[in-house]
Amino acid sequence: MDKIIYKLPCGIRVRKEAFGLLFYNIKDTNLTFVKVDGDLIPDSLWEKGLLAPEGRGGREGPKYLQILKELVKRGLLVETRISEQ
């Protein structure tokens, strides 16, 4: 069975800020400011560069998934399937 994870694309760095997330592209040194509730994003994104969508449950779950989809749309995250075996 495959599992979906989200990763930072190659060359993208990120850190958490009071307003949300600050992305940096090493290929052109451009910055992207993303206003989101940064507390919804697990630390594994800046520590390991990846996160699993099941990181947040309950009422925050849908909002969290919406943020991830939006970041994928903007090219700031990539969705990958990995085998759970």
Partner: peptide, 17 residues
Amino acid sequence: MKQEFLSSKTLSAPVNV
């Protein structure tokens, strides 16, 4: 948009040094 963030909040650290 970045000006909005920089005017209202201090970043946790410099972006570049």
